[in-house]
Design a binder for these strands. Structure first.
Lengths: 233, 233
DNA sequence: ACCTGAACACCGTTCAAGT
DNA sequence: ACCTGAACACCGTTCAAGT
């Protein structure tokens, strides 16, 4: 079977590294590889086509357009999130674990978060994530209407934070630069922005995860308080 | 003065509509006009250069790059927000009015919100908005650390919602399509996504402003609750 | 100093033509 | 049916050359 048999494949391409089959999944896999290695900015039809050793026009047999491609990438990255749901424990802890897992994926591939905001996700993995969150909110006694509206809120926040931090500006800024920025506001513009000057130290304090965890508590506490105040229809 | 005097201007350009002066402000104004009339997608260096009757290379005398240009556009749009602060009333109402005004700008120019997330704003109008919010949170008794962290939260939310709704998908979807989507989830995938099916009706209920106002209450209530529970350092 | 034409190195998408 | 080369209509940015 594995013995050399030149007749099995075209002779002229003997040295080629087995050109990948041109399928929808192959295109998405190639896109994911490029995303990991070169960033979303390089995930273009032309770049993918080059990686698959073909021309850009060939991709349009399997992919409608760039938006379609991006949606597929997003849902592929979401698969581990929905799979890793604990299944036991306090509803609030489980919900926070789920959202933290979601947040981690977006932080690991920060440029994907921008995509998640731009194109409304509707893939199976995203819907499964939504369903799990809705179930946990129900388990926690959150009224249906508040849960429905809060679902958006809970998902939007990790996404937005990831987008904010995915900016090149923030990525290249070190902590020193951040404190320098705070110092600048504190010292130079204390008259123009007095309240910002007072908060100066706290504005840049806290690790990303700490702040995100705090934000999650804010959202959950707020949903419980706000829903009890206005019960909805 | 207004009599025809061909000698005042070069004769060959008599019919031209007074080519605008090429200044930084002129470039930003042209960009704002194109943004309003054709959308952010058309706010390109080449398109602006065409509007100013010159070549794209000429813009680089006044603008470093596209990101610089976008940042200027954002701060220009924020000017009315900071100017319209009420100045009297309950702190919570004034804060909500300020954030609603901010939200309205982003909803009116939805594609700007995407820009606000991508490029960390630092213009004078944005800083003034931050300072006003920080002042109102202080007035409301929110501890400094919670106010500093909550500042991000309060600004991020209207921005993220605006980005989400600025997507072409949502813009072209009518309410009927949304209910159809909900119906599809409810009926077809009730077994796979039971909790989403139960929330089906509520998922798409509520006008945009209602939901955004509810979200604001969630954030403020959550900040007060969460800050009282963990007082910070 | 300011402005410009032309070029460089890219994009997404379409389409007639091949297999 | 699938794949392709070539083209169309764009981008941002740079740079030598003009004024």
């Amino acid at each position: 079977m594995t013995s050399s048999d030149p007749a099995r494949t075209p002779v002229s391409r003997r040295e080629r590294p087995a050109k990948p089959a041109l399928t929808r999944q192959g295109i998405i896999d190639a896109a994911l590889t490029i995303l990991r290695e070169e960033g979303l900015g390089k995930v273009t039809m032309r770049r993918i086509a080059t990686a698959l050793d073909t021309g850009p026009a060939s991709l349009y047999v399997y992919v409608r357009d760039t938006e379609d491609l991006h949606a597929q990438i997003l849902d592929a990255l979401l698969a581990p999130v929905t799979a890793a749901s604990p299944g036991a424990g306090l509803w609030r802890d489980r919900l926070k674990a789920l959202l933290t897992s979601y947040r981690d994926v977006l932080f690991a591939h920060p440029e994907i978060a921008r995509m998640a905001l731009s194109t409304q996700p509707s893939g199976p993995n995203y819907l499964a994530l939504c369903d799990a969150i809705a179930g946990l909110l129900n388990e926690g006694g959150v009224p249906d209407r508040a849960a429905a509206w809060g679902l958006d809120l809970l998902l939007l926040y990790p996404t937005a934070i990831a987008v904010e931090q995915s900016s090149q500006k923030w990525a290249t800024l070190k902590l020193d630069d951040l404190t320098a920025l705070a110092a600048r506001i504190t010292t130079v513009d204390a008259e123009r922005y007095p309240h910002l000057a007072r908060l100066g130290d706290d504005l840049v304090s806290g690790e990303g995860p700490d702040r995100a965890d705090w934000a999650l508590d804010v959202l959950l506490d707020g949903m419980l308080t706000a829903s009890s105040r206005s019960p909805g229809s």
